[in-house]
Every structure is written in structure tokens, then in C-alpha cells.
């Protein structure tokens, strides 16, 4: 069914890298050479055979921190994306199909939320909410669901006025058939590529919050938090902060490549045939 040789090279690279990050996150305790908080050496030791990526600002093994960091980063980003996506898509679809005041109220509310930059709104609410993972996921998920809402509503509205949907309505089909058999299959490919983008955005947003000291709280650290921990080394020429930052970029790019590929595969209207 899926011939590996037919996957374009960039997508393959994306798939492999994404796969590696996910494996590292899942099997973190088995892979990591040291514990997450374990102090194993001097502060900011350079890369060596014992510590492949060197040590961090407190003398912890940076590679192990990175592997555990992958876990936290992916965990929060996945949950926040899942929340934003299910919330946004359900509300967006229902607004498109039901219309009327339900649609109007939801859409105006979303417009309002989107008129404030996400980071600013995030900072405002995080200034009063308790700092813990649940808050973080909820804030990220809800703020980001506005984007998903816009897209899924727009897509569903477009499909809802197509002649084939009208034909189904004329046939007498119920809302169930119309939403799940007529609209959803045709909305899938824009939504899938949006899923990739939203995930990347969640990773970047989380990293930014943690970098500003408002995301994951120590002693735990995601990659953004690790940048913050090690940033003072930069001026002394110690690149420890650049490693987690590069990991974030690598994850974002590889997910982008995978999303592109999925989009290309799912937009074919010939059922996968030439």
C-alpha cells in the first residue's frame, strides 16, 4: 500500500526525524544515560564522550535533559493541539451547519479573541492563573482553538453551498449524513495540514512561554525552558542554549515536511490512483 521509495526525500527526512523525536519522548527513561535532575559533572562542561552534548548550567547531563525535555514538550504540545483542534473543529463545523445566532455569537467572540495577539493574551491570563501544566494546556488550547474555528467554519461553509450537498438535502438526507458523509471527507485535507501547523505553533508557543519563564516551571524543563536555563552561557561562548533551540526548530521543520506530504497525498481525488 505505502511504498517507501515513492515518498519524496524531504518528506522521508521529516518522517524519520519526527519518528525519532517521538521515540525519544516515549522511551525517555530507557534511553537517557542519566536522570533528569541528576548532577553529574561541572557546570557547562563541553561536549565529550561521557557527556555527548556537554552539561548544563547546574552540571546536569544535557543529552538526558534534552530527552526528558522532548517528553514534556511533545506531551504539552500534543494535548494543547488536541484540545484546540477538537474544540475549534466542533464549534466551527456546527456554526457552519446550524448558522443563525449560534454562528453569529461564536464568530464575534472568536473575532474579539483574535484581535489580541495570542502571546499578549496568554501573558495577561497567565499573570493571574496558577502556574501548572493543566493551566498551560488549557490556555494554549483555548487561545489557539480560535484559529482552528476560523478555518473549519470557512471550509465547512464553502462545502455546505456546493451542489452535491444541495443534492443530498433535496434527496432528504439528515444532518448526520450531510456532516459526516458529504462535508467531512472533503474538509479533511485542509484540516490535516492545519493540524500539522497548529502542532508546530503549539511547540513554538510553549517554548516561548517557557523561555519567558511562564511555561513549564523548574525543576522540570521543556526545550524552551532549557534555553532560558542556559542562556547566560552564551555570552561566555558556551553554546548549550543553542542545542534545545535547534531541537525546537528541527522538530517544527520536520513536522512541516510531514504535513506537506500528507496534504499532497490526501488532496488526490482519484482514490490514490494515478
Amino acid at each position: 500500500m505505502l511504498d517507501i521509495r515513492r515518498i519524496p526525500l524531504p518528506s522521508l527526512i521529516g518522517l524519520v526525524l519526527t519518528g525519532l523525536f517521538v521515540l525519544a519522548a516515549i522511551f525517555a527513561p530507557l534511553i537517557a544515560p542519566h536522570g533528569n535532575g541528576e548532577i553529574v559533572g561541572d557546570v557547562w562542561e563541553p561536549m565529550s564522550s561521557t557527556h555527548w552534548l556537554g552539561t548544563d548550567n547546574l552540571g546536569r547531563d544535557l543529552l538526558s535533559r534534552m530527552i526528558y525535555g522532548a517528553r514534556i514538550t511533545l506531551f504539552i504540545a500534543v494535548l494543547a493541539t488536541a484540545l484546540s483542534f477538537s474544540l475549534g473543529a466542533i464549534l466551527g463545523f456546527s456554526a457552519a451547519v446550524f448558522g443563525g445566532w449560534y454562528d453569529t455569537i461564536l464568530s464575534r467572540l472568536v473575532d474579539l479573541l483574535m484581535s489580541i495577539p495570542t502571546l499578549i493574551m496568554g501573558l495577561v491570563v497567565l499573570s493571574v492563573l496558577p502556574s501548572n501544566l493543566v493551566t498551560l494546556i488549557l490556555v494554549m488550547g483555548i487561545l489557539d482553538s480560535t484559529r482552528v474555528y476560523r478555518l473549519s467554519r470557512a471550509v465547512a461553509v464553502d462545502i455546505n453551498v456546493m451542489d452535491y450537498v444541495e443534492a443530498a438535502k433535496l434527496r432528504g438526507e439528515g444532518s448526520g449524513w450531510i456532516i459526516f458523509r458529504e462535508i467531512l471527507p472533503n474538509a479533511l485535507s485542509p484540516l490535516v495540514s492545519e493540524l500539522g501547523l497548529r502542532f508546530i505553533y503549539a511547540v513554538l508557543f510553549l517554548s516561548t512561554l517557557s523561555f519567558l519563564g511562564l511555561g513549564v516551571q523548574p525543576p522540570d524543563a521543556d526545550w524552551g525552558g532549557m534555553v532560558k536555563e542556559n542562556k547566560d552561557g552564551i555570552v561566555f561562548g558556551i553554546p548549550a542554549a543553542l542545542i534545545p533551540a535547534a531541537a525546537i526548530a528541527a522538530l517544527a521543520i520536520s513536522v512541516n515536511l510531514v504535513a506537506d506530504w500528507v496534504l499532497n497525498r490526501t488532496t488526490s481525488l482519484k482514490g490514490g490512483r494515478g
Partner: peptide, 29 residues
Amino acid sequence: LASTSFPEFFIGYLLVFYFAVQHQWFPAI
């Protein structure tokens, strides 16, 4: 496309690392 995937601080610290620390052309702070 790649640079939209870069977090702002990655770009920022790369600049600092290169222009302020390695070459000292501009202040890091």
C-alpha cells in the same frame, strides 16, 4: 519556510553567538 519554524530566541542567540561572542562586533546586551 524554514525560518518560520525557528523560535525567535533561536535566531536571537545565533546572532549573539556569532556577532557578539565570536566576533564582538556588536554588544550582546
